[in-house]
Structure formats: C-alpha cells, structure tokens
Write a protein that binds this DNA or RNA. Structure first.
Lengths: 212, 212
DNA sequence: ATACTATGACTGACTGATCAGTCAGTCAAC
DNA sequence: GTTGACTGACTGATCAGTCAGTCATAGTAT
C-alpha cells in the first residue's frame, strides 16, 4: 500500500494536543450521528454540540467552521475503511490470493462502515475544493492500490473488456450499495450471507473462480 | 414492465394545465442545473427562478415549497431513466436476450442521465417521508422488474451464491458510478467504450457469456 | 500562608447574514 | 369590471460564528 497523502490541518484554539484529540473524537462521533439523522445541511452545530456534550463556544475551540466538522467526519471514515483493507492484505504474496483477500476486505469494510460511507458519498461534494481534494487524493491512492492488486491478480485467465482500473472501480464502488440502498439488500439475509453473496458477485465480475 | 405507481401530486396556483406543464419544465431544467452546481441545500429558489427566467412569486405559483422542486427533479429523472429501459426490452421474448438487452439499456441510461442520477442519489433522502416513499416505490417497482428479468435470464448455467434480487441490485446500482465518480471512470475511454466495458463487467457478474 | 495575577478552557446570549415563502400591487386579456 | 398571471420588496425564522464573561488552576510576590 502506498504512503498516505497528507491530511488537511484544522486549527484548534486549545494547546493541549491530547485534549484536542479527545474533543475531536467526541465531536466526530456526535457529528456522525447528527449528519446521519438529518444530513449535513439540516444538521446544526447546536445539535452537534448537544450531542457531544460541549457548548457552542467550546465546539468552535476545536473546529473553525461547520465544514471542518464534515471534513473530519469524512477523513475519519476514509481512514478507518482504508486501514481495514490494508491490514487484510498485509503479508499476502500470491497475487490471486491477495486479490481475493482484498475483495473480501473491501466488502466487509463497506458493510461495517456503511453509515459513515453514506455520509461521505452524499455530503463530501459539499466540502470546499481544498478539503475535497485532500480527501479525493486519499481515496484515489487507495483505489490505485486496488488497481494494482486487480492487475496482478487477474493476469492470465479469460479475456476482459474492462481495464483493471474500471474493475477496481467496480470492486470499490459496488459495495457502497449497502450504504445507499439498505432497504433493498436486507432481503439477502444476515450480514455474513450478504457479504458472501457480494464477494461472489465481484469475483465473478473479475472472472475469478472462487475457492471452495 | 409493471404498472407505474402513482406520482405525488403537487398543487399549482395557475389553472391553465398546459401552462403549468410548461412552467414546470422550465423550473425542473433550471433546478437541475442549480442543484448540480451547488447541491440542493445551498441552492436557493432565487437561483432557480433566475435560471428559469421566472420571478420569485411566479415560481411559487407552480410549486409550493423548495422541496417540491426537488421532488419534481427526482421524479423526472427516475421517469426518464425507467422509460428508457422499458423501451429497450420491449418485445424481446427470449429471457437471455432480454436480460442482455436490459443490462445494456441500464448502463446506457445511467450514462446518459448521470447528472440527474447524481442529484437523486445524493439528495432524495432529504425529501419528506411521503415524497421519498412515492419515489422509492417507483424505483422499487422498476428494480423488481429487473429482478424478474435477471431471474428468467439466469436459469441454468453456473451456480451463483447471490440471489436474483442482489444481482439486480448490482446491475442497477453499479453504473451509478458514472454519476458519483466521473473523474475516475473517464480514463476508460469515450462513452461507447466505457459503456461496453461496464456491460462486460455486469454480464460477467451475472455469469453470462457475452454474445460476440 | 495568603493574596494576587496570568493563563487556558469553557459558556451561552448575541449578532448579522441568509433565504423560504408571502402578499399588496401591477398589468394584460376578456 | 373581473380574472388570472406575474412582480419583487418584505417578513420572520433560522443558524453559523463571535465574544464578554466565568471559573479553575498554577505560578509569583508579599
């Protein structure tokens, strides 16, 4: 996995770095709950403050703007998701095995983080260009890694019309259906069954036989 | 294709039905442009009015609320998309052929309507429950039709872990990547090439051999 | 030991900007 | 005169962000 691009720095009015970290955690957790419930635009910083157990003024000691909050939420969501997948493919040398592992990890992570992913998908485009760029770079680097894994894991085998790049898009995008259409995928069965079925679809899309 | 569920009625202050239709077209077109540019929340009705060439008060002769505008946009987007696909599979009797036709039509329509689809995906959840329900019913009916087509077109052939339902979700959801990640899929090549590659991925996912 | 001062974290009432929606007024057609 | 379509200034509600004030703690001077 490639080096992680630099994150956008957000200024805080408080000097104690540990406290900044702690309060940010509170804020992000609260913001996730509120944004999920109301969407970013209709969510208020009062809601977030109430939820986090912090006053309005305290909130603004840790973020400068409402948008900073959205950036922190998206950044956190992307980081967790990317980390989970990096860990899953660590130390796997065989390209085919690495690909299968990655696919399963992507699907699992998308299911686990589906609520946060919904926020990112719906709201990240509202960020200013700089924040959007920082996030997009992180996601792009991650998907480029998946492109490499797909490329190495699909050499030989049947002819495919789609590039490794588009295949990687399919692998990383399709499972977001868990976040965007939960009412529709629920019928497939419990989480493990749903994950297995999705992995099956993606491996078929890659024209890879699934190990039994 | 099943009967289309009833649309939500939106009241107008003007009696001339043809004029209502005409003004609504103006409003929807303007709204699509503005919502795409700024997102629904940050878009103002002044923007929409300016874009449509109608005054603030006139705008409110044709819709009651800002949200009505969003509903009209989403309703229009879904109707066009669904119509395009219904027409593509009309009169095709062979289940396998019908499925291949449907897949290609879905992909094509998603590419053609990608800008409107991005609005629906990002903003439809902001609608009130009733509007959301009306829209969702239309989409559900449509996807159920695709489920039936997938079910009929994939009988026999290799064993699949995913249900026809989840496969239909994949078919109807994956091409929304055109709307949500245009900067990533662009590299695949011109529209026709991109559509072909996506069709190839989906047919593979369905474990169907593509006709040469 | 005590009093005073400085520092840093927090509070919540307040401010100014924004905008969805309204309505008195205008104009054209019949 | 009546009706219907349109206009845009206005209103009231909302909310992101501010800032004077409060409180607790630590350090310094007497």
């Amino acid at each position: 996995m490639q080096a992680v691009p630099a994150r956008r720095r957000i200024a805080a009015n408080v000097k104690d770095a540990a406290l900044v970290g702690e309060r940010r955690d509170q804020i992000v957790e609260a913001a996730i709950a509120v944004f999920r419930d109301k969407g970013f635009a209709a969510a208020t910083m009062r809601d977030v403050g109430l939820r986090a157990g912090l006053s309005q003024g305290t909130l603004y000691n840790y973020v400068r703007t409402k948008e900073d909050t959205l950036y922190l939420v998206c950044d956190r969501a992307v980081a967790h998701y990317v980390d989970q997948i990096a860990r899953a493919v660590e130390g796997v040398a065989d390209p085919r095995e690495r690909l299968v592992r990655a696919v399963r990890a992507v699907v699992r992570a998308q299911y686990d983080h589906r609520h946060n992913i919904a926020i990112v998908l719906r709201e990240a485009h509202l960020l200013d260009a700089r924040s959007r760029e920082a996030l997009r770079r992180r996601v792009d680097v991650f998907i480029d890694d998946i492109v490499a894994i797909v490329g190495a894991g699909t050499t030989g085998g049947p002819r495919r019309r789609a590039s490794a790049r588009l295949l990687a898009e399919a692998v990383t995008y399709l499972p977001t259906v868990f976040a965007m259409r939960p009412w529709r995928v629920r019928a497939e069965g419990p989480p493990d069954k749903l994950v297995d079925a999705m992995v099956d679809i993606l491996l078929a899309a890659l024209r890879i036989e699934q190990p039994a």
